[in-house]
Structures are given as structure tokens and as C-alpha cells.
Simulated scan of single mutants.
Amino acid sequence: MIYQKPQIFMLHFAGGNSYSFVFLKEKISNAFEVHALELPGRGKRFKEELIKNSEVAIDDYVQQIRSKRNNKPFIIYGHSMGATLGLFVAKKLERLLDIPSALVVTGNPGLGVKDEETAHKGKRYLMGETDFKEELRELGGVSDEILENEELYSFFSPQIRADFEVIEKGLPSENIVIQSPVYAFMGAEEKCSDRIENWKRFTANHCNCDVWEGNHFFINDHPEALVRILEKSFDHSIN
């Protein structure tokens, strides 16, 4: 008989893939089954066409999770774009009577706040190359090696633009509230970190929010702390 373990499903940031969370997976206890998922057009799914529609992206993630589910509790973790999509994925699974034990989100202040920033700066997927590269530098998730090498940049930029289009062109229009508790974390250097408690609007359960030292990719500096959050979120023992 195969012993089934509680499951952790990870949703990547814009331009990310299933390899983006290796630094976390290697630190998570083997008492958990970890699945780092990815959307088409990158990583192991490179040959598939990029998705540029939020509802298609949400359905893709739901189908991936459903195909891997066992009968044990599970959580969803998403960073940045993955946090936004994770909220809708959790709601869709809830409607299918498969409710996550928790939604853990990082690098994202929740729906509505980013819309204000987009209105000020303009949609990122429509930016010219100069402004787009500057935006990526500001976010900190793309190395200078990629930004300054035209061959590398031309390879990765379509993936990042497509992902920005997914979350900026139009998310499902609904007042979404999930039954799962939410644990939200942001980097102190992120522009909207003071709005992190916005996440409380999206759960009928409890919501724990905190700001950690670092920029948008602060998770790279705090892997052990984040892993503790992921593991403890199953039994809601996070202080």
C-alpha cells in the first residue's frame, strides 16, 4: 500500500516555471508531497502555446491539481502572479468540493491594489522594450545577464509578457471570497507592502499577514522561514 502525503501545490510568478521553486522544494520535509506546477510555454511545457487569458490559465492549474490529488489535505502556494491566480484556483476547487487547507501567498497585496498601480504606470505587457526592461529590473526577478543579452532576453520576454497579460488584461469579474484561511507575506521594499491586509477581504476564514525584509523576491532570502509557513499552514498553527 502506498502511503499518501499531504500535498503542496506551487504556482509560479510571471516568467517562472516548475523549476522556480527548487530552492523551497529541497527544504520541505519528505512528509509532504510537493508539486511545482507551470503554465504552458515554458519549462517542461515549452512546446505548448503560451496562455494569455486568465480563465484559461486558472482552468489549466485546476486541471493539473485535480489530476494529482490524493485523499489527503492540500494547500496552494503562489508568488506574485501565482498568488493572484491561486485565489481563483482555490475558489474553483472549492466549488468542486475540494477545499484547500490554506492559501499561502507572497509578493502580492491582493486584487484591487495592483489595479491602482497599473492605472498609474500602464499595463506592463504593452510597454515598449526599454520601459519593459526597466520594469523587470525594478521587480528584481530577472538577472542583468538576461536583460543585457538579446538572445536570452528574446527567449524569456514573450513568456513574461504573456503572464503579465494574463493578470492585467482582465481577471474573472466576481467578488471572490474563499473558505480557506489565507497567509500573506510581502517584502518591505515592495511598493504596496503597506496594503497587505487587503487579503483579509478575500477569505471568510482567518487571514495572517506579515512583511519581511527584502524586495519583491524576498522569498529567495527567507527559504527556511517560508517552508515553515507552508508546513504549518496545514494545521493552522502559524502565529
Rank of each mutant, 00 (worst) to 15 (best):
I51P: 03
E224M: 01
A36T: 03
Y153W: 05
I99G: 06
K44E: 13
F185D: 02
K25A: 11
H216G: 03
E174I: 15
Q159I: 15
L24N: 12
M186R: 08
V142M: 10
A204C: 04
A184S: 12
E174M: 12
I160Y: 07
D60F: 14
I65L: 04
I99S: 10
L11I: 14
D59H: 09
L171M: 15
E190Y: 09
R228V: 04
T203G: 13
A57P: 06
H35M: 03
K68L: 15
H35N: 08
A31P: 01
F88G: 02
I51C: 03
K25H: 06
I146R: 02
R201K: 15
K123T: 15
S157C: 10
E117I: 15
V182R: 05
W212T: 02
E49I: 15
W199K: 09
G78N: 03
A36F: 08
R95V: 09
C207R: 06
N149G: 06
A188C: 04
R66V: 12
F217L: 03
L37H: 05
I76A: 06
G187K: 08
P181K: 12
F9E: 03
S101I: 02
L226H: 09
T203V: 14
H12F: 12
G107N: 14
K133Q: 06
N220C: 00
K191D: 02
E116Y: 06
P158Q: 08
K72D: 11
E224K: 11
G128V: 01
E49D: 13
D144C: 04
M1D: 09
G112Y: 11
C192F: 08
P6N: 10
K72Q: 15
E135I: 00
G82M: 06
E135A: 08
Y61T: 12
A36N: 01
D221A: 12
I75K: 03
F217M: 06
I219H: 06
G16M: 10
V113I: 15
N108W: 05
R228Y: 08
V227T: 11
V62D: 02
T118G: 04
E55I: 12
E213N: 07
L103Y: 07
N175H: 09
A162W: 04
Y125P: 05
L11A: 03
R95L: 14
L171I: 10
P181N: 13
K191N: 11
F234C: 10
R195T: 08
G16W: 11
K47F: 14
P158T: 02
F21V: 12
K72Y: 09
R137M: 01
I167F: 13
A188N: 08
N239I: 14
E168N: 13
F202Y: 15
V104A: 01
Q7V: 11
K25E: 12
G170H: 14
P172L: 10
T84M: 08
V22N: 15
A119R: 14
T106Y: 08
A83W: 03
D235Q: 10
Q159F: 11
D59K: 13
H206R: 08
R45M: 13
I146A: 05
P223K: 10
T130F: 01
V22R: 10
H216A: 00
G15C: 10
V227S: 07
N71R: 06
E189C: 00
P172I: 12
A57K: 06
V104N: 07
G214V: 05
H120R: 15
D210W: 03
D59A: 06
K232T: 13
L11C: 07
E129V: 11
P172R: 09
L24D: 07
L147D: 11
Q64D: 04
K52L: 03
V105Y: 00
